[in-house]
Amino acid sequence: MTREQIAETADFIARYLSYMLGAGVHTSRVVRNSKRLGNALGVDVAIHTSQKTAMLTVSDKDSNVLNTRVVDIPSFPISFEWNADLSALSWAAHDRKMTLEEVRREFDTLVSKPGMNPVFVLFMVSLANASFCRLFGGDIWAMLVTFTATMIGFFTRQHLTKKKVNHYIVFIVSAFVASICASTSLSLGIPTAEIALATSVLYLVPGVPLINGLIDITDGHIQTGISRIVNAFMLIVCIAIGLSITLILVKNSLL
């Protein structure tokens, strides 16, 4: 392999790696898949990851040519579809002996697949949070109130995210809006109003990063795992701030 070929391979693997990490795949899978992909393309890959950057060294098996990259991890929305497809791509490259050109073309088609319809997600999340309310013991009114409160909160989140507002601010604002809406159920005098108020913000809880972080820790990628958990914890703090604003506004008369 020539120097240029190795550089090209390193470029592609760096991109593959950063896309996977950016889409919220847990670290050990990313490392394993990138190594498998490198193997299929005839190079050895060594990887170091952290929260915002990753470093990889690609080396030819025969000659002693090395190529090292430090890549920024782009912040894509979490995508399980990329997780599944890009993992499958690494196996396909391994099993079908694909060339770099083929793999790259396949990669480009996979990452440009259509995403989830925002309206679909809006309705699914609202339904999910209403069911969640039920799981916590809410009655039909609490569920209905949670449904529309989640809808307005999640719509706010989608809208602000589209406007590229800082995600901490997005979380605070959407938690506040959702909980303010849910707090109107207090006026109905139903006993489950408190449940509606508490569940209305739970659609924001970053469950995927939390679980990913713990999977990383159990896999031994403890640093990355902890940074993921700390990141998720920051978002939970933001949710609590948003909800506290509501509680301070509303509960002053209650307490």
């Binding site: 995508s79 399980f80 579809e81 989830m116 999340v125 069911s131």
Partner: peptide, 22 residues
């Protein structure tokens, strides 16, 4: 309980864009 958990899982999961077949 199972039914509502299923709806919740699909809904919260859909934020993270799983493949439709899943």
């Amino acid at each position: 309980d199972g039914l509502f958990a299923a709806v919740a899982a699909m809904g919260f999961g859909s934020i993270s864009g799983p493949p439709l077949r899943a």
